[in-house]
Amino acid sequence: MAYSNKVVDHYENPRNVGALDKNDAQVGTGMVGAPACGDVMKLQIKVGADGIIQDAKFKTYGCGSAIASSSLVTEWLKGKSLDQAQAIKNSDIAEELELPPVKIHCSVLAEDAIKAAVADYRTKNSK
């Protein structure tokens, strides 16, 4: 598989690897994919009182482009509002990383992970 330099860079130097406390009310956690499919992404966001994402962390089991897609979105998420975060489209990710067609599903999974993390945060804070 010939990857773009951007994928290789994110793969070799992944940004924001790690975990946030999932029981923290400020933290939203999204876990998408399945091991059987070869990709699992766990994305966490920490949202400030102003509704702005202060921090984002990920862990990903998957191919190089899955790791790169999740690493990239953690960079993009910081400083965004929840609505702005939800507006990130898989095509933006695929375009930025120049993903080959067979790897587009990795960007879809990253978009799903953002939506899942935001939804989790909103559920926690809806009361």
């Binding site: 994919g33 399945a34 091991p35 059987a36 499919c37 699992v40 862990k59």
Partner: peptide, 29 residues
Amino acid sequence: ELSPLWEMYKDGIDVANFEWSSHDTQRDV
């Protein structure tokens, strides 16, 4: 260290029997 599955395994969660949500997402795509 990058793998959420390894983290689950280390936390004592049974990865094989965990209920995965969007199993068919990527195949649909």
